[in-house]
Design a protein around this nucleic acid. Structure first.
Lengths: 221, 221
DNA sequence: CACCATTAGTTAACGCCGTTAACCGAATTA
DNA sequence: TAATTCGGTTAACGGCGTTAACTAATGGTG
């Protein structure tokens, strides 16, 4: 009678409310504040009600992560517009750090916190590959474009290796900055400076000597 | 009568046994396996007995961290012997990754896991500064030597900035490698390759054009 | 020697946590 | 109307970190 559909929609609705409550709780108070009981309390349900919609806490978190990964990927939308392939890569690096700092809780969940279960099966996801590959795929696109431009040093041929090295360096800047935030006693240089220097090293390691982009940063930064 | 000393020594002894049990449990089964109850079980005490020797779990972990930091610093003992300052820095980088991979649980506790309480007061420590600064101080020494050698580009003058950028990059390689270990589905390049490439970029970003060390890696690696 | 103070360690309990089994009650279906 | 489905609740289990009250052995002191 179609009323079945209504019931299904209602179920989807509470499921969404659970996810929203978890996300909000997580974003505002950090991962350790996300407990089944507090999520339930927020939506005025019993903790066990959550288990009707999610197998367990990990399944809930995994679903949170997939939506966060989409948000993460969306954060790089603007870099595609940058014309120069090298500058585009730097722009992506800056966007990466920006995301990590402005959404540090999300960044921690996605890339720092090691969940008990491997994130292998984040979601089947639409199309090919997990959403995690969306941002990574974009990185491959950007680095691939730099590679195709012929401006990289001839020894650079391994695209995955290049991407993973770039990612590693940026992740290092982001994650160390996040964990050093409170660590006041330490005289920590501004993240922007560390980011800029890392990107400068990356570019110099990537492009051939005498590349026009080098003059942007050659003088005295 | 001196028997007081014996009592004190006995107390120190059980305190040490608690730390040993925690360390062993931690190294073999990871951080989440370290619970007050399991530690107590190992040394055949009651969980509450631990509270005679440590204020709470965090205090115990902090003490574990300080000894791990010493072990961490000791891991770099051999790099001081390398003569060439640039090569010494690379050697330290390799040692860093080596430590992170062979003692990944310790590395996670020290640099990845963000403890609820800032690690500000790890220990007053002997001499000046916390033990965390020992390895960092060594990094400052190594980078400082490179700086003093006059082989770095003239724009490099900020020693802390250089050290922190180096550290960030190496930390990125280490931590991403650790968290990607299980993540099988992903075609991840060997950590040694990523490490080598990162160090190559670092060196090229650091030293002047035409530095002799560049010919080591210039050809076609 | 007798008495008291100190203290390493135990017992019992509290309030959290994730999770499960049994149940309830309203809506759907036959 | 009777049977069935199923979103949600109640009560409970085992485990966690931590605390208060207590025990028992030791040490110093009159």
């Amino acid at each position: 009678m179609g009323s079945n559909e209504r019931r299904e929609r209602a179920k989807e609705e509470t499921r969404r409310r659970i996810l929203d409550a978890a996300r909000e709780l997580f974003a505002s108070e950090g991962a350790e504040a996300v407990t089944m009981r507090r999520i339930a309390e927020r939506i005025e349900y019993t903790p066990t009600a959550i288990y009707v919609h999610f197998k367990d806490k990990l399944a809930l978190l995994r679903e949170l992560m997939t939506s966060d990964l989409q948000m993460f990927a969306a954060h790089f939308a603007s870099v595609a517009a940058v014309e120069d392939p090298i500058e585009r890569l730097c722009s992506m690096g800056h966007a990466y750090i920006d995301f990590a700092l402005t959404h540090s809780n999300h960044y921690r969940l996605l890339f720092i916190t090691t969940l008990p279960i491997p994130k292998n099966e984040l979601t089947p996801a639409a199309g090919r590959g997990s959403p995690e590959e969306d941002a990574y795929a974009m990185l491959e696109l950007v680095v691939g474009a730099a590679l195709a431009s012929g401006r990289l040093r001839p020894e650079h041929t391994d695209l995955p290796l290049l991407c993973q090295t770039v990612w590693s360096c940026m992740h290092g800047v982001a994650s160390l900055a996040i964990s050093m935030r409170c660590h006041s006693e330490f005289e920590w240089r501004p993240v922007t400076d560390i980011t800029a220097m890392t990107l400068r090293w990356m570019v110099r390691g990537l492009v051939r000597d005498g590349d026009p982009y080098l003059s942007n940063l050659g003088a005295h930064p």
